[in-house]
Structures are given as C-alpha cells and as structure tokens.
Design a protein around this nucleic acid. Structure first.
Length: 432
RNA sequence: GGAAGGGUGGCCGAGUGGUUUAAGGCAACGGUCUUGAAAACCGUCGUGGGUGCAAGCCCACCGUGAGUUCGAAUCUCACCCCUUCCGCCA
C-alpha cells in the first residue's frame, strides 16, 4: 500500500518505479482521484462545521428560553441535513475508489534490483555445491515414490482431486523429519521463535499481506454457515498469520527485530497454473512449509534480508543439496516485494533448478496495510515497521529434492545424515 | 447451540442526551531541584484527515454499520469480537 501523499510528492519516482516493473504510469490518475476525494471532504466539512455551530447555538438559545431563535436555527440545520447526505455519500465514494486503486498497486523495487521483464532477467547471485554425478539415468521423484509404494496420487485423487498426494510409511516420516529438522535449525541456531499460528485467517489479515483484494482467486475460502459473511481463508503461506502478529500495534524499538518461524500446511488454489507441473509433488493444493518472518526497523531491513537468506541456505547446505541463489528482476517479483532472492535447488530427475525458497523484503508496504508501527527510541512520532518473509524451506519440494538427489540405482533412497536422528536412525528408504 | 457480562486514547479507567472542549491515573517527553540519579513538584502529551508559508483553524473517530434527534460515547436496531458459565465436542 502506498501513501497517496508520498505519491503526490514523488510522482515521477513512482511512475519510474512502475516502468521498471513494466507497468504503465499511474500517478496522474491517482492524483486526480485524490483531488476528487479532497474536494468532497472540503465541501462536506464546510457543511458540517455550520451544522455543529448552529446546534450549539440552539442549546444556548434554549437555555435562554429564546424559542423563536431556536426554531429558526432548527430550520436551518434541517435544510443543511439534506445537503450532507449527498456530500457524505460523495466523500465516501471518493475515498473508496482511491483506496481500492491503492490496494491493487504493487510495490516498487529497490534501486539495486536488476531490471527485466520476466524470469529471464533474474541474476544468479551465487551457487553452492555441484551437480551430483550418477552412473545411471536419475528418475523423477514421482517415479521413485510410486515404485517404493510410498507416494499415491491416484488414491489422493479419489479422496480430494487433482494436485493432492498421499504419502505413506518412511516417506511420510521423512517429510515430517524434514519439517522438524528445519524448525529446529531456525529456532536453535538462527534465532527465530517458533510459532504455531492459525491456519485460517480473516479478510483483514489476508489484506495485510497482499493476498486480498487482488489474489482472491488463489485462495481457498471457508464459511461457517450458508450465506455467512464472516468467511475465513485458508492460509496460502504462514507469512499471513506470522506477519499479522504485529498488525494494529505500536512496538517499542527495543522489541525489534522480531524473528518468528512456523511449520504449517499451506493451501493454494493454483487458479492460474492449469497445465503446469501437473505430475508429482511440485505444485500441490496443499503442502507443508517452514516460513521465516522478520519485523525490523527501516534501517535494518536490508541486512535482515541477507540474514534471512543465509538462514534458508543453511538448510540446503546441511542437507547436502546443490543450489543457486537468484536475485529476481523487477518483472519477476511478487506483488508486495521490494527485493527478492529465490533459492533454486537442483533436481537431477528433472535436470533443472527449481524454486524451493523465496525471501522478500517488503519495506513498509505491508505495514501500512496492517497499520503496524513502532516508536523509535526517544521519538514521539511512530513509524511503520519493515516486514520480511521467506521460506525456510518448502518442505514438499525439499522432499522432492532429497528423493531425486539421494536416489540409488536400485530405486532406494539414502537418508541424508542430518535427517537420520529424526527417523529413528533409518539409513535408506527401500521397497522391501 | 443456550445464558450472562463486556468492547472508551500507547495502557488502565470514569463517563445514561447539551461547559465532554472525553475526567482521573499509568507510561512517555520537557523542566525545576540534585554532584549525578531517584523521589517530589510544574508543564506537555490520543489517532486519522482537510486547509494554510506558518501560527493556527476546521472535520471525523468511544468495536462495526445503520437509525432517532436541532444535538449521541450516552437512546434504538443489526452485526462483529472478547470473557465467564452451561451443553456438545478432539
């Protein structure tokens, strides 16, 4: 969410920022909406001012028993009242159309973000490890999982439909192990506080982290009863409840940074992804993810972004997986991001790098939507916090990566060493 | 699902139609005092918006939305949320 006052004062910079994202200039349109809004407010306030003054006079006249004067004023206020109704409606409509427009405007990239139209403009920031060598043709994760008898898409389709999976036995345990391992790493080593948040959130929370109003189609929604207005949304990521932990609050600067992490299921309608990744566990309606969220001051958000990336990378390092870090270009970033690092893990079965984490700094974009502020030490005025979120990591995709990278020629899977303590010392997944 | 009680500034809390221009307290900030601090005392102190070079002036806000009234934190209606108890339930 942008501040219209900021846009008024920085119209050129605003339009240039949009241009870098491949978007049309919008400041002129927004400022004209704002002019309409301000004119409506001014005219409404003038009427109300007179009404308030007259009402006060009526009280005074009645105290003096001057009923003639009181009646005269009552008539005047009654006449004003007809006017206010129209003016109020006008003011409300003007404010709504400005807010609606502002709510659908994506964030602007930081200066050091590469400019580009789509994912081809992303820049490789670093690479870790190297492609594992196989003496045989490595298989894709779904072939491995199904052959082991531990991954069942057909049954999931009967129960729920496409884009769901049933995992069983040691494979189900490995998914759980991955989540536990990541969570322990972030809490014990990386300094995050574990949180177990609600998986269903209200519309205000979903608006705060940009899922609404623009991306409603990507969410699953629930309602308590037929025709009920108080619907809740299934979280598409724990970013939503974790970031909203600070909504509508004023924090002391000494309380920052706040670093929280959660292991949760995530639910995505995947409305725009028809035909993409239809086989396997890469793109599901439901998947598990460990999320990292930081709340910081504006001064510290850039450094926190790198720290968060390092925390996510550490998971892959300990799992012994080959990956690269991409700095997303302006055209490939998400709605709320000022800057984003994607981590892509190597999948030998697919012979490709695939996204397994995305770490974004949002500046005050979400904080404005949530009204999340802090009071700088010694200052009277509050400021908006900066928010950051990142996956650390997507557990479903991590499972895919382990299967494909740790596969053996006989179809068995070697369990990465760091996971063994979480799996009762198991060394291999195999079809017995 | 049933019953009762609640929702007022950063926090606590008074306030049942017109000096409420939202009391009072806490916290915070400035000052006096002090070698320094604490205490005490004095002062400042809600949020958002409009207008103005500025000082200021003005509008809105007491859970949300409607309504009654010349005038609503206060009265009416609907809804949301929270607490406690009962019922059901993992």
């Amino acid at each position: 969410m942008f501040d219209i006052k900021w846009i008024r004062d920085n119209a050129v910079a605003f339009d240039e920022g949009r241009k870098k994202r491949g978007l049309e200039p919008l400041s002129a349109h927004l400022l004209s909406l704002d002019d309409t809004r301000r004119a409506a407010i001014a005219q409404n306030q003038a009427v109300q001012e007179r009404r308030n003054a007259a009402s006060k006079e009526i009280g005074q006249a009645m105290a003096k028993k001057d009923m003639a004067r009181a009646d005269e004023l009552k008539a005047e206020v009654a006449a004003l009242k007809d006017k206010t109704a129209g003016f109020e409606a006008e003011e409300k409509a003007a404010i709504e159309s400005l807010n609606k427009a502002l709510g659908e405007i994506p964030n602007i990239a930081l200066e050091d973000v590469p400019i580009g139209a789509d994912e081809h403009g992303n820049i490789e920031k670093s690479v870790h490890g190297s492609k594992p060598a196989f003496t045989f043709a490595p298989k894709e994760h779904f072939d491995l999982g199904e052959a082991l008898g531990m991954m069942d898409f057909d049954t999931a389709a009967k129960i729920s439909g496409a884009r769901f999976v049933v995992t069983k036995g040691p494979l189900a345990r490995m998914e759980r192990a991955l989540g536990q391992f990541m969570l322990d790493l972030h809490t014990d080593v990386n300094g995050y506080t574990e949180v177990n948040p609600p998986l269903m959130v209200n519309s205000d929370a979903a608006y705060g982290t940009n899922q609404l109003p623009k991306f409603e189609d990507d969410l699953f929604q629930t309602s308590r009863s037929e025709g009920s207005v108080d619907r809740l949304w299934l979280i598409p990521t724990a970013e939503v409840p974790l970031t909203n932990l600070v909504r509508e609050s004023i924090l002391e600067e000494t309380a920052l940074p706040i670093r929280v992490t959660a292991l949760t299921p995530c639910f995505r309608a995947e409305a725009g992804s028809a035909g993409r990744d239809t086989r396997g566990m890469i793109r599901q309606h439901q998947f598990t993810k460990v999320e990292l969220v930081s709340i910081t001051t504006p001064e510290h958000s850039a450094a926190e972004h790198v720290r968060m990336l390092n925390s996510a990378e550490e998971v892959l390092k300990r799992l012994g997986l080959h990956y690269r870090v991409m700095t997303l270009c302006t055209g490939d970033m998400g709605f709320g991001a000022q800057k984003t690092f994607d981590i892509e893990v190597w999948l030998p079965g697919q012979n490709k790098f695939r996204e397994i984490s995305s770490c974004s700094v949002c500046g005050e974009f979400q904080a404005r939507r949530m009204n999340a502020r802090y009071r700088p030490t010694g200052e009277k005025q509050t400021r908006f916090v900066h928010t950051l979120n990142g996956s650390g990591l997507a557990v479903g995709r991590a499972l895919v990566a382990v299967l494909e990278n740790y596969q053996n020629e006989d179809g068995s899977i070697t369990v990465p060493e760091v996971l063994r303590p979480y799996m009762g010392g198991m060394i291999k997944l195999e079809n017995k």
